[in-house]
């Protein structure tokens, strides 16, 4: 009897040892923002970062969609992690992600019709976003629900940061607007900066400019944090 109570107490201690926002757990959120950013360091999810960054609004909605999908997928895979048969785990992950993406797509079509028109196929392509499958396979399958939740939040915010920064420059210099609001004046009427002969940079509207901007982002990031520089 006495021995048993001791064991129970020990177990309690073990549980209490890890608070919700322990150092380790905090790192799960902050790491993907900078040192282990899914886009700039792991170079995952680049395709959508190139495609949906022409307008900030689309980039923000895309980020929110990815956040929702990754969060729900990480949680559900983490809940099932002890049940999922090892041999079909990738298929199971795919089914979970695919159905979440369909839900997002359907909800957008019903409630945010204009945004869904703008994002068109890219919502469906969240399925192929490597960040999501990467986090499921690398993290959620081997960790408890709470850390998986934090991991999903961290990674999707890290992804969102890059998208928002890239789309900021693309929309500003590509069409002189931010969130659709004219910043540099009206190009067709020739007001504001355009009256002085300023012209929008057409390249900024095309996918290649995202590559350049993402590269500059990585450059700045590595300049600020020299430990990230790889030495071969």
């Amino acid at each position: 009897m006495a021995e048993e109570t001791v064991i129970v107490e020990e177990k309690k201690e073990v549980k209490e040892r890890e608070p919700l926002f322990s150092k380790k757990n905090k790192k799960l959120i902050t790491d993907p923002l900078d040192e282990n950013n899914p886009v700039t360091i792991q170079v995952l999810g680049i395709c959508s970062a190139l495609a949906v960054t022409v307008q900030m609004k689309a980039a923000v909605v895309m980020s929110i969609s990815v956040l929702f999908v990754l969060l729900m997928a990480n949680i559900s895979v983490s809940l099932m992690r002890n049940l999922i048969p090892n041999r079909i785990r990738i298929i199971v992950q795919l089914v979970v992600v695919a159905s979440l993406v369909i839900i997002v797509d359907q909800v957008l079509k019903a409630y945010l019709y204009d945004v869904s028109k703008e994002l068109s196929v890219f919502v469906g392509l969240i399925i192929t976003n490597c960040i999501i499958m990467g986090r499921l396979e690398a993290f959620a399958l081997g960790n408890k629900v709470w850390p998986s939740t934090l991991d999903a939040l961290g990674n999707s915010i890290g992804y969102a940061m890059v998208l928002v920064v890239v789309s900021f420059f693309k929309e500003l210099f590509g069409s002189g607007k931010l969130f659709g609001i004219e910043i540099f004046g009206n190009a067709t009427e020739g007001t504001g900066l355009y009256a002085m002969g300023y012209m929008d940079n057409g390249l900024m509207l095309l996918p290649p400019s995202s590559l350049i901007l993402v590269a500059i982002y990585i450059w700045v990031q590595k300049m600020r944090n020299p430990t990230l520089i790889e030495t071969h």
Partner: peptide, 26 residues
């Protein structure tokens, strides 16, 4: 968990749950 029966049962249950959910939402 490595048996074929478990794998197939798991797959079937998962697909039924997901299919039902999607049909309901749609």
């Amino acid at each position: 968990k490595d048996s074929n029966a478990y794998t197939i049962t798991f797959a079937i249950i998962l697909v039924i749950i997901v299919g039902g959910l999607l049909a309901f939402i749609s």
